[in-house]
Design a protein around this nucleic acid. Structure first.
Ligand code: SF4
Ligand code: SF4
Lengths: 153, 153
DNA sequence: ACAATTAAGACATTTTTTGTCTTATATAAA
DNA sequence: TTTATATAAGACAAAAAATGTCTTAATTGT
């Protein structure tokens, strides 16, 4: 599992919301996009997935935007990431045993299973509340993520 | 890091060689390909990478083929996989800190670093000797990997 | 010399990821 | 009620990565 851009953006989005009032307040898409250096239209699609997963709420109309539905203490990195990129796995046969007839007796398969469980547990153990405690990442109207230009430097 | 096909094939290739004489004998590309259900020409490219990494030796000419250079006891899954798909990482910023200006102070980044280290350690701890102990995977001229048709079933 | 085998790398195809755009809809406020 | 400001939804486009094929050349055993 390599974190895709969409996954990274989703994490940034949630961080941004968690920082700015948590489940209490609404942040506009433009603000979240600016804060996390996320292409605004791409964020729209990401937000829709987060919304379907019940992680955020989308408010339409003037003064619309996004609101966190789950308290940061209850929300893990794993939840957000898997909402975006689907259940984590490291090799196809872990999630689709039928993709390889050897899977049932395969020693390598067992390693992938174990490694995946370990990884998912690690990510499940990290809540956004914990992440917020350490100073980091985006600050609305302050420190921000790098622009595309800065990244390519 | 999702294991690519090439990565999976490389593991199968090494398993096959390890099973059939280890560092002592040569197995032809055709035999390895049949054993692991690997497109033969694709295997050629994979073998070249494994060879550059010093994991196998390629013997040209009639009666040519591949030979394991590293004893199965000394060869870990991590080595083979990283020879194929490069150093494992879960998010870009782990391996290219300059890709995100926040990386130095980012709490999320730290999680990715830790998760990556854990994963690499797990894979480094598994040698092909260990894998061979448990009956599994390909057996030259016997049990074999599924064909494309079987996989799509 | 000949047959068998891999090297090397260009090329093609497919899949995934990333991003944009357009039309429709919802809300707040004048 | 009208208008300005938002997002919804999904089609579409572009780029990147992965997978696979093919052709020409080189190497080795017989
Ligand atoms: S061989 Fe083992 S590891 Fe490779 S795909 Fe089949 S089951 Fe999974
Ligand atoms: S925000 Fe943190 S995690 Fe996301 S890319 Fe930047 S450093 Fe890595």
């Amino acid at each position: 599992m390599r974190l895709t851009r969409a996954g990274e953006y989703a994490v940034r989005c949630v961080m941004c919301l968690a920082r700015n009032g948590g489940t209490e307040s609404v942040v506009s898409r433009q603000d979240v996009a600016a804060c996390g250096d996320i292409p605004s239209h791409f964020l729209a699609k990401i937000a829709q997935q987060l919304s379907r997963a019940g992680i955020i709420e989308i408010l339409q109309g003037a003064k619309g935007g996004y609101r966190l539905l789950v308290a940061p203490e209850k929300l893990s990195l794993l939840t957000v990431i898997e909402a975006m990129i689907g259940e984590i796995f490291l090799n196809d046969c872990v999630v689709r045993p039928e993709s390889c007839h050897a899977s049932l007796s395969c020693a390598v398969n067992k390693v992938w299973m174990q490694a995946r469980d370990q990884l998912r547990q690690t990510l499940a153990g990290v809540t956004f509340a914990k992440l917020l405690q350490e100073e980091s990442c985006c600050i609305l109207q302050g420190d921000k993520f790098p622009t595309q230009d800065e990244k390519n430097a």
